[in-house]
Design a protein around this nucleic acid. Structure first.
Length: 443
RNA sequence: GCCCCCAUGGUCUAGUGGCUUAGGACGUCGGCCUUUCACGCCGAAGAUCGCGGGUUCGAACCCCGCUGGGGGUACCA
């Protein structure tokens, strides 16, 4: 079994593309042990750029989707494409034609709206493939079953431009043939291209691969997923603080079921369970809420050392270990970390509303907490907690009335890691300093 | 217009003729926990399985029609 992922470098790798890549990769890692070929479809000089190629490879690497062969650049195979083109011209399977949209429209006006265009061979012009005079071109899709298109309704497809350069549907078929691809797993938007490609294989007298068309991914509005729907590309997901393993797991589930009552799977488990036959036929909507939940679960499963490494890489800030330890239960993504615990390193922020409510209105609360803490003979989690708990009980106040002023003094806001833990991590000197500053501010 | 594909709670899915008074997950709502926010735990609401016909003793599962949605329709990929 040989599979391939063949993105065109006309933009960043989108989630739909990532899932197509993933499913091919699962086939390679799973029991079938397929060989995974990566090919870059760069035959459109207008839209293909080197930067996009790099971005795609980068996204694939980040996700951990390694390939066995390639990347093969389609533009490097022009000699072979020309050879195959000449072969079809010589065998009469293809012909030159200068017919354009006007001629095709005129043809349909004469022969009926559903009649496929048939041109007359000319001395020059673009090259069209002659659609055989047979009832239909059919194939057995691995996820959808039999798909059949009447030949009479298919236009003779243009396979090479007037300047001789080949077009997508021709190049794909030739490249898949040369790479001996046995299974083409790609998006549903290629279903209507498949008969054309099948015809190329047929004209070349070559065996046809098996096809599997994946359902498309839609945005919340039910339309094809696009940049307008938020985090649509792999890069954006990475920047939003998602873990690659969570993205892999979530994306795999978007379009296939792997078990009746389980959803969390490692890449290896996904590969072991994946079957093309169990891929869903209907489009799925990308739901970031669920990804977030998955990400939180993966994140909490990480060791503190590993989580710290990733957060340091993500934020670019060193020595995060103490803060990570007291924040890890509270964050869902890597990006959640800094807004929650960054104050430990950046100093207290200032949220006027929080300050007014918890400190300015009644500075005495904070002052007495500050005095209690200042008297501590030893500064550690146990002593801090004991002292503050006693203060709460002794003052008859609600816990929040004692803790919130401290929290606001230390962080600037009402949300932070546990207050005892935060005091402990900050240390006596820094903690008292921040409380003093808040007290000064309150006048 | 023409060709093709699809249709289970808000979302992702399980289900392939009786085990289904349709299972799980996310989300939502309520409660517990509690120093904030989260996490965790407990519980609940939410699906006439798009609609209409068949086939069958019996259909979410099979057949037909319809409706709705999507994709393609380039000398793009």
């Amino acid at each position: 079994m040989r599979v391939r992922f063949a993105p065109s470098p006309t933009g960043a790798l989108h989630i739909g593309g990532a899932r197509a890549a993933l499913y091919n990769w699962l086939l390679a890692q799973g029991p079938e042990h397929a060989t995974f070929v990566l090919r870059i479809e760069d035959t459109d000089p207008e839209r293909s750029t080197k930067e996009n190629v790099e971005q795609i490879l980068d996204a694939l690497r980040w996700l951990g989707l390694n390939w066995d062969e390639g990347p093969i650049f389609q533009t490097n195979n022009t000699a072979r494409h020309q050879e195959a083109l000449a072969q079809l011209l010589a065998s009469g399977h293809a012909y030159h034609s200068t017919a354009g949209k006007a001629e095709v429209d005129a043809y349909k006006a004469e022969h009926g709206a559903s009649a496929g265009f048939r041109g007359t061979p000319e001395a020059s012009g673009a090259v069209r493939l002659r659609v055989p005079d047979k009832p239909a071109t059919s194939f057995d899709d691995a996820v959808r079953g039999e798909i059949s298109t009447p030949n009479a309704s298919m236009d003779d497809p243009v396979i090479a431009r007037g300047d001789g350069s080949v077009l997508y549907n021709f190049a794909v078929a030739v490249d898949d043939l040369d790479a001996q691809i046995t299974h083409v797993v790609r998006g549903e938007d290629h279903i209507s291209n498949t008969p054309k490609q099948l015809l190329v294989f047929e004209a070349l007298g070559a065996p046809q691969p098996r096809y599997a068309h994946l359902p498309l991914l839609h945005g919340p509005d039910g339309k094809k997923l696009s940049k307008r729907h938020g985090a649509a590309s792999v890069q954006e997901l990475r920047d939003a603080g998602y873990l690659p393993e969570a993205v892999i797991n979530y994306i795999a589930l978007l379009g296939a079921g792997f078990a009746p009552d389980e959803e969390l799977f490692s890449a290896a488990e996904l590969a072991a369970r994946f079957k093309l036959e169990s891929v869903s036929k209907s489009p799925a909507v990308f739901d970031e809420k669920k990804l977030r939940n998955f990400n939180g679960q993966y994140l909490r499963a990480l060791s503190s050392e590993e989580l710290t490494r990733r957060l340091e890489a993500f934020t670019g800030h060193p020595n995060l270990a103490p803060a990570v330890e007291i924040s890890r239960e509270k964050i869902q993504t890597l990006r959640d970390f800094w807004p929650l615990a960054g104050f430990i390193y950046d100093g207290a922020g200032h949220d006027p509303k929080a300050f007014d409510k918890w400190i300015a209105k009644d500075p005495a609360r904070l002052a007495s907490a500050r005095e209690t803490l200042a008297e501590l003979p030893e500064w550690n989690l146990t002593t801090i907690e004991a002292a503050l708990t006693a203060l709460v009980e002794g003052s008859g106040a609600k816990p929040g009335q004692v803790y919130q002023p401290i929290r606001v003094a230390l962080s600037g806001t009402t949300v932070s890691p546990g207050i005892f833990e935060t005091l402990n991590v900050l240390g006596r000197e820094e903690s008292l300093k921040r409380m003093d500053q808040a007290l000064d501010r309150a006048g």
